[in-house]
Design a binder for these strands. Structure first.
Length: 217
DNA sequence: CACCAGGGTGGTT
DNA sequence: AACCACCATGGT
């Protein structure tokens, strides 16, 4: 069903072309800044970092925490995020830069980022998928909710199961990255916290859900 | 005014 | 393992 969801979402919304960023460090910084934050506000913070010429690990570590906090204030949670960004930049420099990290296998890379303060499973996977282009599926709250609604009766909707299923079904980096973007865009449009989506393909009364129900019966 | 946004952490039950 | 408060600004 993962491929079907991908096809339907792509058909409905078109390619999203994530991640919207210039280079790898900008993606990594954006992944931290967007945590529990609307992208619009995270983008403001990125732009302010760009204006301050702070969008490289080497430049970012030279800024004081206070200066960093001021720059990223529009993104919210600016005190914790400033520390996280600085620790990340320092980590990247210490380990020999992004090129050195890129040579590591995906599992080792993921573990390294998970060890950084403020980098959990979701942010680590976003960094792996979009910055390092590893074939991983980013499981977020939207993905879990969407697959819970369209899933078959006995479908396992745990994060691990969804991730494994999507990665097996789609397999390519581009498709996995696209699926995550499509799910976010779709849920923001039609499946807000209270599901009232009149045009949502994934509603109980939508075509796909009916199709899925008849198939599982 | 209330609620939410492309989470993570540390604490409590 | 599930739940909780907290972090904090900007938009609706």
């Amino acid at each position: 069903m993962f491929e079907t969801v991908y096809d339907r979402l792509l058909e409905q919304h078109g390619p999203q072309g994530w991640w919207p960023a210039q280079d790898r460090f900008e993606i990594i910084a954006g992944a931290v800044l967007v945590q529990r934050t609307a992208w619009r506000n995270a983008a403001q913070a990125i732009e302010r970092l760009r204006q301050a010429d702070a969008l490289t690990p080497e430049r970012l570590v030279t800024l004081s925490v206070a200066r960093l906090e001021t720059l990223i204030k529009p993104a919210g949670f600016y005190r914790v995020k400033a520390k996280r960004l600085k620790a990340l930049a320092d980590f990247i420099i210490t380990t020999g830069g992004l090129a050195a990290l890129d040579r590591l296998p995906a599992a080792a890379l993921r573990r390294l980022f998970l060890e950084r303060p403020g980098i959990g499973p979701e942010t680590a996977d976003a960094i792996l998928g979009y910055a390092f282009r590893r074939p991983v599926f980013v499981v977020d709250a939207y993905a879990r909710r969407l697959f819970e609604r369209v899933g078959f009766e006995d479908a396992d909707t745990s994060a691990r199961s969804l991730q494994a299923g999507c990665e097996a079904a789609l397999s390519s980096v581009d498709r996995l990255n696209e699926l995550h973007a499509l799910i976010v865009v779709h849920c923001q449009r039609y499946c807000a916290v209270t599901p009232q989506c009149s045009r949502c393909l994934l509603r109980p009364d939508c075509g796909y859900a009916a199709e899925a129900a008849s198939r599982s019966a």
